[in-house]
Write a protein that binds this DNA or RNA. Sequence first.
DNA 1: AACCATCAGTTCATATTATGAACCGAATGT
DNA 2: ACATTCGGTTCATAATATGAACTGATGGTT
Lengths: 270, 270
Amino acid sequence: MPTKPYAGTQSVRRAIALLKMFSDERHEWGLSELAREVGLNKTTAYRLLTALQSEGMVARNPLTEGWRLGPEAITLGALALRSNDLVSAARPELEALVRETGETASIEVLVGNDVLILDGVEGPSLVGASSEVGTRWPAHATSTGKVLLAAERAGGGKVPGGPNGGPGRSKNRRQLRKLTPRTITDPDRLDRELERVAERGWATAVEELETGYVAVGAPIRDHEGRAVAAISIGGPAARLTAGRIPELAKLVFRTADRISRRLGGRSARR
Amino acid sequence: MPTKPYAGTQSVRRAIALLKMFSDERHEWGLSELAREVGLNKTTAYRLLTALQSEGMVARNPLTEGWRLGPEAITLGALALRSNDLVSAARPELEALVRETGETASIEVLVGNDVLILDGVEGPSLVGASSEVGTRWPAHATSTGKVLLAAERAGGGKVPGGPNGGPGRSKNRRQLRKLTPRTITDPDRLDRELERVAERGWATAVEELETGYVAVGAPIRDHEGRAVAAISIGGPAARLTAGRIPELAKLVFRTADRISRRLGGRSARR
DNA sequence: AACCATCAGTTCATATTATGAACCGAATGT
DNA sequence: ACATTCGGTTCATAATATGAACTGATGGTT
């Protein structure tokens, strides 16, 4: 079996790969460079792009003639977001949490080694975290990510950078990015941290994602007790002091539990 | 030329067609029904779906085993939205407009025969319009849509239901949907309305989209004077009375003009 | 001004790739 | 007990996607 990474349609995966090349750093691509970057023949890239264009998934900047994401991507994304039951179930609880704590709250899911922000409720403070829906952060540096990774780990799943990746799991061995001086990048340390998180049921991220930013997260569980999402509150380190963390953790934990029950999930107590 | 609607990759277009089957009415599909609905062989649909799944564009509901949109769709959509320069340019102006008028404002683009909401700023009133980003409305029943269609028309473009569709333009001849008793559904009447809109530079939609809802819209133009988007304010008919329309139109028009200039566009004066 | 490099986009012969009829076993309904 | 419908798989076939080579335009360099 030389190279057959996936059964299925190659051209479709290639097309999606093209879409994924767009990022906040790079809204727009020229054909040649884009093709080069994804490792496709220019002709192939061109054909795939025109196909995507005909469906509105990409569009061309009339000025620069560059390729960018199209309106249909927006439509689909918004729809995907709305069809996520988690968001609607969590919204009122998040709002309540913000009222209680005065900090910004959000709900996130694990996708790959990142957490994806599904929804956010801004706190009243001016110095607050701005949680942009749809953005992603490295899981190992966030409270929500730790909570979800801890659940993965407990379920025998693979954890990024983890030392216990099964045989042949080379894809997973990639480096844990250091985002601040306090980001946990040592796989063993992360493993121990996750073990602790799994035990107590909530996680913190103290200036591990961004200097000066602190967050506390807890898991939302489905009817089988699997952690399907996590919520957190976050704000400046000046307000989320070590002394206040336990109290906040309790609130976040309880809110997560309430959302779980809304979804027909069981209590977070293991 | 028998059937060769587009050059390009068939499987990619089919895959996107699958994605587009998801809607607010239908978050989730079973394989067979979905395949039947898009007119694909079940095997083909299955393969395309697994390919999309491997890229995270669709995901499966672990409970029902049904197919739904995946997290990657959310990521892409949010990114597409952020990479739209219009949104960031318009935001502060829309906020100012809301402060001035007390009504809800939004910015929209034309995609096909619909307008797509790119961004919205809610008014302070409780009885307000809720403008959900990413949703679409039939262009002919909205103020923004009329503004954009009027520009199409002026530029010799095709207009939905329009009598002046070029020869062989059958796709375009489809019926104008009647959403309220006041929706314009007669192509000739719409044509006259668009002519008027093009002349004066702004449009209204008085209980044409939804009974009790009134909106006023004006176009945003790029450096070549092409209308690339439109903004509007909208609210309950009780507040947006006929007497108040001209004054509101002036405000909306000026705001649109200001956004155009922010984008390096020229003044809306033809 | 001649040159070179790089761009977007097109052509076309090739075989790789996607395709769909038929099939399987499991649920579900009658 | 039988009939449907489901999700999913197999496999021979040809239709489809592929990429090397080409065109023509643009822009920078010497």
